[in-house]
Design a protein around this nucleic acid. Structure first.
Lengths: 211, 211, 211, 211
DNA sequence: GATGAATGAGCGTTCATTCAT
DNA sequence: GATGAATGAACGCTCATTCAT
């Protein structure tokens, strides 16, 4: 489904056994995420990260094999956060009538993108195609989840719930990402949320009619 | 609408009218676009571009104030190409019945993204947030165009054609971009195109019902 | 005789008498020697040595003032081993007739270089000119020993036994070292041993004739 | 005969087409050779070399792909110099009677090692086993040359001229190298030269007698 | 004593950019 | 105009060494 060759296995260097070490790792990851979010990928040099984290460059390399490993860890954490928000906002959605369920879904997806919008963009930009895997895997998981939810609703009777899920999730994601980049404040606009719901409901209705 | 602080004004060094210089500029831009598309932003160093273009690095700087100016020029040309493809594929669409019009629109948007998909991605990745303006402007223009087209169709009777256009264009764009990145070959899948049409038609139907 | 300025005096941190410490020191030295021999000087970092020895880096520095002190200790031990092999193989040589004595000498020198050939090379490579003293001292001692043995043989009647010893020992050593580096397996070749014996015997004969 | 796997092809970066460039390359090589000779391999950092050569670090990398390429170039030049000295000192040696020929040979080998003795040592120390090829090739060539010369002398009637040449050349080389390191001034001692000649003549005599 | 997290000088290297020719 | 040799700030990263626990 997804993609391509994986060369480098995940390469963390030491997982700290003293609690001091864990704090250090957190500081580094947080510093890197901040710089990434505020000034973009090119500003997130290993030296800048170490400086902002208040540790020496050597310390950074105690915990991360290279810059890429750090970036991947940030990606992993970011995805985990989005995942958590999404899961939290989606609990019990299956029991809801469709319109409410869609409302919840839209709200949840938007919320998950609001966790760290600038970082989200930066990660998309900074990670080479080979390294977007973590983020890709998350998106794939979301598509799968939505696909299952759609298939579970007999009322919908979709001929290809997977395809519909793909279109909806990717479309929604792209819409949110573009809006976040160009008009971040607009993501709070209720009219936009309403339009997104219309898009979903309309797509579902139309998809059922399809052969 | 758009965004953010602009540090550097657009800076090209001269607008060579004579064909000599124009050919050189073309060679440089083309070389850069090729490297960008094939090997990504990090491979597109000024020296590599000059070498591939068959000119000296000094000559490159005669025509472009800095690397960024070159990248922006590539963006400008890429957008112009997408624009041209889009316009070409959309001629006479207003006279068409809705289903055919939608079919044409989907085909046109997909086609415009297929002009140079790798370059498209590379530009999104390599341009700093501040410098995506050209691409943003294009997307805005497409939204406006679609908005006008929607507003012109009395049969649709949309309460907010602009909002609907925004959602559709951004959603479609994101869907295509994500697909291009993760499953490029799938863009040829007729089922996907059908699903996209369903999304549009459904959204339009649903949006009309909205108050 | 030997050479040059000595900056740092030999610096070990403590001479641990208790077996606890001795075992640790041994482990460290052995680990370092192994890495040196197998992967060369650049791989023998203090951290790598400590890791392979199964001790912490801090412990390593408890016993060795710095990396150089460790290297020198390895040199010392290596020389001691070569010395032991040599002495063992040379016992009773004085009573032997010349051809047998020479045969024993060649065998002994070859054997002493075979104790740890890779380590031998690595030490020559990794020790700064200033720190080859231990090895130099060993070679000087061998020369002296051979010189005494030659002087003790009235049958030879050498005009300058010391000079002859120098030439023979250094020549033989260089020959073995070069062969070890370029054609290590050839050191087992009986023809080579025979040629070495011819060299010695011939040199001895010729040297006597010299005024 | 010699050895082993060759990974990296020689990697020079640009061979300068302006004469300015050639001067720069020479300055860099010379600076590196000086540092190597005076302070040893570890002092010959790329930055130190560039500084001493009076060029920027970037310039160094215009001409050498990496530090190793620079070292190899130095090796190449050094070997060429030794070669030249050797060839010059050996002209017409074949017509000479054996004792004079040997005298010339010893003088020539000593002279070739005196071209840049400290550099010679440093190269042996700094080059990884994989990269001594240039120097090895030179030594092999010398062995071959001596072997041919020996085979050409019917008076010697050696059973294995190649083996004898190997022993003599490696022995002499090692002897000189050791002496250079420990007692450099002694290389001028006529007694040592005499002893070396004795070694050669004796070895030749003895080798003939061998079966 | 032993540990190992932390340090930071310094390494090899890249690449956007300048300017004498 | 065009060239390409030269620049040097800055990058990612290593490793000998220290010191609080």
């Amino acid at each position: 489904m997804a993609t391509s060759a994986r060369k480098k296995p995940v390469k963390r260097r030491r997982n700290p056994i003293q609690s001091r070490g864990q704090a250090t790792v957190d500081a580094i990851v947080e510093a890197a995420a901040q710089i990434l979010a505020r000034k973009g990928p090119t500003a997130a040099t290993t030296n800048a990260v170490a400086a902002r984290a208040g540790v020496s460059i050597g310390t950074l390399y105690q915990y991360f094999a290279d810059r890429d490993a750090l970036l991947q860890e940030i990606g992993r954490r970011h995805v985990a956060e989005m995942q958590a928000v999404l899961a939290g906002a989606l609990g019990g959605i299956d029991g809801l009538p469709l319109p409410e369920a869609v409302e919840r879904l839209v709200a949840a997806i938007v919320a998950s993108h609001r966790v760290a919008p600038r970082l989200h963009q930066a990660l998309h930009q900074s990670l080479a195609r080979d390294h977007l895997d973590t983020i890709d895997a998350f998106e794939v998981a979301v598509e799968a989840m939505v696909s299952r939810a759609l298939a579970g609703r007999d009322e919908l009777d979709l001929p290809a719930p997977e395809l519909t899920a793909t279109v909806l999730v990717r479309g929604l994601g792209g819409l949110i990402r573009t809006t976040l980049r160009r008009e971040p404040e607009r993501l709070d606009d209720p009219a936009l949320a309403r339009a997104m719901r219309a898009m979903i409901l309309g797509t579902l209705g139309e998809s059922r009619r399809d052969a």
